[in-house]
Amino acid sequence: MGRKSFKAKGEATVSLTSMLDMFTILLLFLIKQTDTEGNLLTQAENLKLPISTSLKSQAEVALVVVVDSKAILVDNEKVAETPDVAKQDSLLVAGMIPVLEKKREEEKKAALAHGNEPDAAGRVVVQLDKNSSYDVMYKVMASCGWAGYTNVSFAVVMKNAES
């Protein structure tokens, strides 16, 4: 029995309709997720923020303090080791104070230059890992308050905005 021979009949075309459908769905999904207001706060690496029902977004630029399992960073500058802070008895984190005070002075000068009130309370956003201890959180918060940053906020993942 001989094999059947297939002869090419005309030109083969690729149907792009299904791909177009897929792209349309993808585009609509991405447009829905897009934040047109921008984002002043970005989650630090190696950090699991707690999930919260809070619907408040950060509206103003603020100093960011990051506390992960290894270190404490003020404006991306490492100021202390987290395990050392957990062990210390003092309420204030010695490494944080001079950096925070310097930042606060700079903010006051900038406020004066722009004709704003220089003594208005400083604003700080603390990004803490959800498994951090209350002790470390309290010491970081106390140090911020001591340096003049009395408007303290914690960064969280918004529960209702999760995809």
């Binding site: 585009l27 997720q33 897009t34 047109t36 706060l41 408040k56 977004s57 993942v157 905005a161 995809s163």
Partner: peptide, 17 residues
Amino acid sequence: IMTNTHFQKVGIVDVAL
């Protein structure tokens, strides 16, 4: 659009000293 998309929105919780 993908570069401007946030799948996890970061918010804040205010706390009073």
